[in-house]
Amino acid sequence: MLAKRIIPCLDIKDGQTVKGVNFVNIRSVGDPVELGAEYSRLGADELVFLDITASHEGRKTFKDLVRRIAENISIPFTVGGGIHEIGDVDALLCAGADKVSINSAAIKNPDLISEVAKGFGSQVCTVAIDAKLDESGEWTCYLNGGRVATDKKLFAWAKEAQERGAGEILFTSMNHDGVKQGFANDALRVLSESLSIPVIASGGAGKMEHFKDVFTEGKADAALAASIFHFHEIAIPDLKKYLRDEGIPMRIV
């Protein structure tokens, strides 16, 4: 049976992990390769590395990092952040990334999704969507890490992304992100049932039950989280055993 996936997300700045990550087993917690390898050893099913570097120099560092990740880590990984055009995608895939995650650039230029899918296959093309539930009850998509509202609505945009060739949707609820009260399960269920591509849930994980809910109520195919893993609030082996005991198909290493 196809397992539900647990995906830690690492933010990278100038080639180093950010957020005060604290791990006892690894020498350099700032090194994304070592941290990624540790998550892989603990049973993470995939990894996401998001480049939050603004400078051109930092971008080059990120590409070198992607190569080192590909050389050293034996599970699939997605990279995102700073992808503006097809050339950026080409460079990251050539460096060894399995998938790329496109966010703002896809909203600004939806043709980019089609170009990536046509050039490299849908399986490499994850479209990330940051959306917020507004007072009128609609989910509005945001640009630039949630700073700029757009006229795109979550469900219509996700559907369009699929039709253009996205292989996966990574949906972050801005209402739930950082609050640790659970994922946006109602919206996730609608998304998952209306799309024929996998949906990764992001934003809201606080305790193990939230992961159970996102898979059962939210019908998500995968769940992504950052700080609760980085700060040891939840250990991946414990989480996966708990979910397996709750009847959710899990790969246990």
Binding site: M1, L2, A3, R5, D45, S122, Q123, G167, E168, S196, I197, P198, D221, A222, R251
Partner: peptide
């Protein structure tokens, strides 16, 4: 060919 219980194609992820 997707059926009633499984609608997601590609088959992506870890399977036994």
């Amino acid at each position: 060919v997707p059926n009633e219980s499984i609608i997601k194609v590609p088959h992506m992820g870890w399977n036994t």
